[in-house]
């Protein structure tokens, strides 16, 4: 057991996979000399050389598409897009190519590309650098979408994604890179099929993922002090989502609060809420509540930025409301 940061866990997976399989390579803006905009690939250029740690120009559509192409011919590319905001320039490649090629070809080709990107707000980067677009990608059949929230998943899910025959998009919340966590020895393999019960409880299910897990867990702890037992689900895999675990938990607690940084309307939380209403309706003892992004492009000043994304206090308030202590 050792303590590592989320960033180090990502780097562990990058190194392990590059050592294990020579088809694996990393490309993206400033992944080499600069060491990655969030320093995940620091030192890897020296270790693996320019051919496998490829700095790209500012050409998101071009190099993401190139990753898809390389995957088509048997490589295992890891494409890093600095932030999800810039991935919008590559949306065409990801959605019209990566997600469709297998299907359009009648199953003849597959696209084992892994696309990593940072996501989320909290660093006062204002309206063009702070958004969470998980909803865009989870909307698309053909993509697998991951949202690691722990150091074990940061490493393990990247490795599992590389073993997956289909395109995988990994969201790394920028607020997590410095987070420390215990990494068991040897580091464990993880699956891409299950949600994780991060904390067991009986009164209300708090459903979240990625960057919101920390605040949600804090909320659960605060609720416990008030005698309310909250179960926390870390969804981990956003698509295909492990609905069984969600429904089982709701069947136990009969109440659900969804916490997601993306905008509420038409968002990721909207789908989770709709599915619970559709398929676990008879289990509900209270309306589903969502703590999600406010409908505003994220502003620069910290008080407004924080007001536009989920806060621990809001999670607590929503949970209290559904358990009837509001």
């Amino acid at each position: 057991m050792s303590e590592v940061t989320f960033r180090e866990a990502v780097r562990m997976a990058l190194r392990e996979s590059m050592h294990a399989d020579e088809r694996v390579f990393l490309m993206g803006e400033d992944v080499g000399r600069y060491g990655g905009s969030y320093a995940c690939s620091m030192g890897l250029l020296e270790e693996f050389g320019e051919a496998r740690i490829r700095d790209t120009p500012l050409s998101e559509s071009g190099f993401v598409g190139a990753g898809i192409g390389a995957a088509l011919v048997g490589m295992k590319p890891i494409v890093e897009v600095m932030t999800v905001n810039f991935s919008l320039l590559a949306l065409d490649q990801i959605i019209n190519n990566a997600a469709t090629l297998r299907h359009m070809s009648g199953g003849q080709v597959n696209v084992p590309v892994v696309i990593r990107m940072s996501t989320g707000a909290g660093k006062q980067l204002a309206a063009q650098h702070s958004h969470s677009w998980e909803a865009f990608y989870t909307h698309v059949p053909g993509l697998k979408v991951l949202s690691p929230a722990t150091v074990v998943d940061a490493r393990g899910m990247l490795l599992a994604a590389l073993d997956d025959p289909d395109p995988v998009v990994i969201f790394e919340h920028s607020g997590l890179y410095n987070m420390k966590g215990e990494m068991p020895e040897p580091p464990p393999a993880v699956d891409l099929t299950h949600a994780r019960v991060a904390r067991e409880g009986t009164d209300v299910t708090l459903i979240t993922h990625g960057g919101c897990l920390r605040r949600t867990t804090e909320a659960a702890a605060a609720l416990a002090e008030r005698g309310i037992s909250a179960e926390v689900l870390d969804l981990r895999v956003l698509r295909p989502l492990d609905w069984n675990t969600v429904f089982e938990s709701v069947a136990k607690t009969h109440r659900a609060v969804i916490v997601d940084e993306g905008w509420k309307s038409w968002g990721f939380s909207a789908e989770v809420s709709a599915r619970i209403a559709e398929d676990a309706f008879w289990m509900l003892d209270a309306p589903v509540r969502r703590v999600a992004g406010v409908e505003v492009p994220i502003p620069y000043p910290t008080h407004l930025e924080q007001a536009s994304i989920p806060q621990t206090a809001q999670v607590i308030a929503a949970a209290l409301e559904v358990v009837g202590h509001g």
């Binding site: 500012l58 810039f86 006062q124 204002a126 650098h129 502003p299 620069y300 407004l304």
Partner: peptide, 22 residues
């Protein structure tokens, strides 16, 4: 205050940002 360092606007001076997507 909404934009910060990366998004200086002043329509009167016909300054249209401060654009942060390269």
């Amino acid at each position: 205050g909404r934009g910060g360092s990366m998004h200086l606007f002043d329509a009167e001076h016909r300054l249209y940002g401060g654009n942060a997507i390269v």
